[in-house]
């Protein structure tokens, strides 16, 4: 049995930021979003699973899907699970707006705030200040910042801006990205790596249930569910019980990644270099660097 400790709701693909490296190509006019029925059903299922300790809400911009997120949190709030939201702050147009949005959420344990030159192209810095003003008075909400950057200098200057603004945080996530320019597709890693993957390579521990807007479940956030070929599960239970003939068993024991790519056509648009549990194994095996170098030259 695979232990799943973390569930991630991808609530929808609408977002006012239009980051060229976004793994779901979120845009302001995207219509795809999770229905209330799916949010209700899946959050109840997740609430009943003791092994899932952390529930994360992302998108797109999750605060653009308030009804679904609030309903899911209602179902989870009495459970012993950390509730985490990632936000690009696009909906935080005033302190009153921030207060109004958070008043609909019964509990939030952590926020990850996307603050970088990509998001600042489309979201006024005032929005981030309004959020900071709010969390100053709500110490129970921990805040971390996620910084995407194209160069070390860009990363350092963003850190300096956070420092100068006096934003409260307890952690920073570094997300180096390869920027191909707006509107250009990024290189799916199987195409990039297929000739470089050792025959005996296996992914490291997979501990994520990724819930897509249509309610299906995949094993990893970067194996984006809207891309073709990924093994999908109809229900959370089939996902959690899946230990024979599913994507986990093939990843963990039966096939090499090269064979998985060939047999199942797993593809994605990996374009950030921040290691997750799966990509960390790419990194440790020297393959994430290969992605970076090859895509950077594309």
């Amino acid at each position: 049995m695979i232990s799943i400790s973390h569930a991630n709701f991808v609530l929808g693909f609408r977002c006012k930021s239009k980051c060229s490296h976004c793994f779901v190509d979120a845009t302001p006019d995207h219509q795809i979003g999770m229905s209330l029925a799916i949010a209700d059903s899946l959050s109840k299922q997740i609430g009943a699973e003791d092994e899932i300790l952390t529930v994360h809400f992302s998108g797109g911009e999750p605060f653009a899907y308030m009804d679904a997120m609030a309903l899911a949190i209602d179902n989870l709030v009495s459970r012993e699970k950390s509730i985490i939201i990632s936000t690009g702050c696009s909906e935080f147009t005033s302190l009153a707006a921030v207060e109004q949005l958070f008043s609909q959420l019964k509990r939030v344990d952590r926020l990850w705030v996307s603050f970088d030159s990509f998001h600042l192209e489309n979201v006024p810095i005032e929005n981030f200040r309004y959020l900071n003003d709010y969390v100053k008075n709500h110490a129970s909400i921990k805040v971390g910042y996620s910084i995407c950057y194209r160069s070390i200098k860009e990363y350092a200057s963003t850190l300096l801006e956070i420092q100068r603004e006096g934003f409260i945080y307890d952690s920073i996530i570094k997300q180096p990205v390869v920027d191909f320019g707006r509107g250009k597709r990024l290189v799916p890693y199987p195409q990039t790596l297929s000739n470089n993957i050792p025959d005996d390579f296996k992914c490291s521990e997979v501990s994520l249930a990724n819930i897509w807007p249509d309610g299906t479940v995949t094993n990893c956030g970067i194996f984006a569910g809207r891309n073709p070929g990924i093994k999908r599960f109809d229900t959370l239970r089939s996902f959690l019980d899946g230990n024979s003939g599913d994507v986990f068993s093939v990843i963990r024991s039966k096939y090499s990644l090269k064979e998985i790519n060939q047999k199942f056509g797993i593809c994605t648009t990996v374009n950030t270099l921040a290691p997750c549990t799966v990509c960390k194994s790419f990194l440790e095996n020297g393959m994430l660097k290969t992605i970076y170098e090859e895509t950077a030259e594309t």
């Binding site: 973390h6 991630n8 991808v10 977002c15 793994f23 779901v24 979120a26 952390t54 994360h56 992302s58 998108g59 797109g60 911009e61 985490i84 990632s86 936000t87 690009g88 990850w112 996307s114 971390g144 996620s146 952690s171 996530i173 570094k174 997300q175 994520l208 956030g221 970067i222 921040a274 290691p275 997750c276 549990t277 960390k280």
Partner: peptide, 14 residues
């Protein structure tokens, strides 16, 4: 670093 990697995983989508 592993803990940090998990945090990075949390961030997907934004």
């Amino acid at each position: 670093e592993s803990v940090r990697a998990m945090r990075a995983l949390d961030m997907r989508g934004n």
